[in-house]
Simulated scan of single mutants.
Amino acid sequence: MTIEELIKLYPTGKVQQTKAGNNALSLPIAGSYFIIAKDSLKETEIRLLQQLFPEKKYPINQNKHPWFDYLFNQAAIDIEGTFRILQFQLKKPKEFLQTEWENSIKEIFPELCDFFFISENDGALIERYSKNHYALEELESIFLTLDADFDSSTVVFVGSFFPVNELLYKLFQEEQQIFKTEADTLRGKSTFSLTDVALHYFTKDAMEKSLIIQTFGKQLILTNEIQKIILSLWRNQGNISSAAKDLYMHRNTLHYRLEKFYEQTGLSLKRMDDLVFCYLLITK
């Protein structure tokens, strides 16, 4: 049964990336969940749908990983403190030294509380807060070094620090959705956090629905070259000298390209507001 067929049968249902609470039935399908309110279903319907759409089984001993049971099954957890969750996607070579890789992770993170794979390539690190926790740039260097040592390729979403309470697993579910949505949209960045993608993630739907944005997108001539310039300026916080170096372009040449773009569009990529607008146009 497809999502389209489910929607025809249950028009009040909706599709989302994460499971719903206990008052709704969450059916895993096509990498998402189809959500139906339980009070709109008969008990026999609930049992039938659960048989048709069984919950995914994870290759993990849940007794050894209380954090897994808490985050994915909402089980109780007897832990206090503030933690962040690093989600990762790991592309492995054929001859991958997984035990050595895992031992390296455990050695690198002194505040690591739990660490597990939830599939062949996806996993999570749970790290307790400390004053000396790794900054984003340090984490990027760590995983790039691991990739070089193990011939792997890793994409990491660095979650925010939150206290353990009844909201934490819900916050993790939202971070999961952000990771799934944004991991493939990043260019040239393998380790990122919420602030790297917040502007794009939280404005994407509004941008896609806006007639003004659609018309602007058709009128603007956004060549491959100007898109690379916009992305480089964005990554370098509008710094022209840094962007020119990043683009292997002379600073005066970049100035000329920016002036030509301004003449054609009325948008100055030297102004942060215009740069943000153009960045959203090419990443929507």
Rank of each mutant, 00 (worst) to 15 (best):
Pro28Gln: 09
Glu111Lys: 05
Met249Tyr: 10
Leu280Gly: 02
His133Lys: 00
Glu55Pro: 05
Glu5Tyr: 11
Pro59Asn: 05
Thr253His: 15
Thr99Pro: 01
Leu281Thr: 02
Asp196Ile: 01
Val155Trp: 01
Thr145Cys: 10
Phe192Cys: 00
Pro93Val: 06
Lys228Gly: 11
Val15Ala: 15
Gln264His: 10
Thr154Tyr: 07
Ser242Ala: 15
Gly238Thr: 06
Leu25Val: 12
Leu86Ile: 13
Ile212Phe: 15
Ile118Ser: 14
Lys38Leu: 14
Tyr262Ser: 04
Phe115Met: 07
Pro163Ala: 14
Ile3His: 05
Thr12Met: 09
Ile108Tyr: 08
Ser141Phe: 09
Phe277Val: 06
Thr185Asp: 07
Asn63Ser: 09
Phe172Arg: 00
Asp273Met: 04
Ile77Phe: 09
Ser26Leu: 09
Ile7Arg: 14
Leu171Glu: 07
Val158Lys: 05
Leu233Tyr: 03
Gln227Ile: 04
Lys64Asn: 12
Lys94Cys: 05
Thr203Tyr: 07
Tyr279Trp: 12
Pro110Lys: 13
Glu127Ser: 03
Tyr256Cys: 07
Gly123His: 09
His133Asp: 11
Lys260Trp: 06
Lys91Glu: 10
Leu194His: 04
Asp149Glu: 15
Leu97Cys: 10
Gln89Phe: 11
Tyr201Glu: 02
Ala135Ile: 03
Tyr129Ile: 00
Phe172Ser: 00
Leu233Gly: 01
Ala37Thr: 04
Gln237Arg: 05
Met207Ala: 05
Gly81Met: 11
Ile36Asp: 01
Glu100Leu: 10
Lys64Leu: 14
Ala30Tyr: 10
Gln227Cys: 13
Ala124Glu: 12
Asp184Gln: 10
His200Cys: 03
Lys57Asp: 15
Leu280Phe: 06
Asn121Cys: 06
Phe261Pro: 01
Gln176Cys: 11
Gln50Lys: 15
Pro54Met: 13
Thr99Asn: 12
Phe157Glu: 04
Tyr256Arg: 14
Thr185Tyr: 13
Ala183Pro: 00
Gln227Thr: 04
Ile178Trp: 08
Phe277Ser: 09
Lys170Pro: 00
Lys245Ile: 06
Ser190Gly: 12
Gly21Phe: 10
Ala148Met: 12
Ala183Arg: 12
Glu100Arg: 06
Lys209Gln: 14
Lys38Cys: 07
Lys56Ala: 14
Gln237Pro: 01
Trp67Gly: 00
Asp196Lys: 02
Pro110Gln: 13
Ile226Cys: 03
Asp151Leu: 11
Ile7Asp: 02
Leu146Lys: 04
Met207Arg: 04
